[in-house]
């Protein structure tokens, strides 16, 4: 059964890009346009990994991450933060509790990015 990846990004093009990339690599994808939408989705499903943008309307990536890590059922989900903001990893705790976290700068290199995804998924 394919593993599920939740893509959280407000940019439609980014959503499409990651969706095609992951599906081509054999993963199942779900899309949320912001943190708020993603938290609603997490009440019904449990993804194996989340890719997270930082700057988004309604609920930013950082706020979503804090909510994610404070939920009993969601705190161990691995997260890859994908952002074009220079030094975006500074916004997050250096060693946050819960599941693993990785940071990727835009623009991504597809093979390298998929390698990190596999690593976080333990493949």
């Amino acid at each position: 059964m394919p593993k599920k990846i939740l893509i959280i990004d407000d940019e439609a093009d980014m959503q499409t890009y990651l969706k095609v990339l992951f599906e081509k690599a054999g993963y199942e994808t779900m899309i949320a346009a912001n943190g708020e939408e993603a938290l609603v989705m997490l009440t019904d499903m449990q993804p194996d990994l989340i890719t997270l943008d930082v700057l988004m309307p309604r609920k930013s990536g950082l706020n979503f991450f804090q909510a994610l890590r404070s939920g009993d059922t969601t705190k161990n989900i691995p997260v890859i933060v994908v952002s074009g903001i220079a030094g975006h990893r500074e916004f997050f705790d250096s060693d946050p509790p819960g599941g693993p976290i990785a940071f990727v700068d835009k623009p991504i290199v597809p093979d390298k990015f998929l390698g990190q995804v596999k690593k976080l998924l333990g493949e």
Binding site: E11, M14, T16, Y17, V20, I85, A86, D105, K106, P107
Partner: peptide
């Protein structure tokens, strides 16, 4: 601009990737 251009580059690279796929 760097941030914005990164996003646009992502969009362009993503577009090319989707076209190729």
């Amino acid at each position: 601009m760097a941030h914005r251009i990164k996003n646009i580059l992502m969009g362009l690279e993503g577009g090319i990737f989707v076209v190729n796929t």
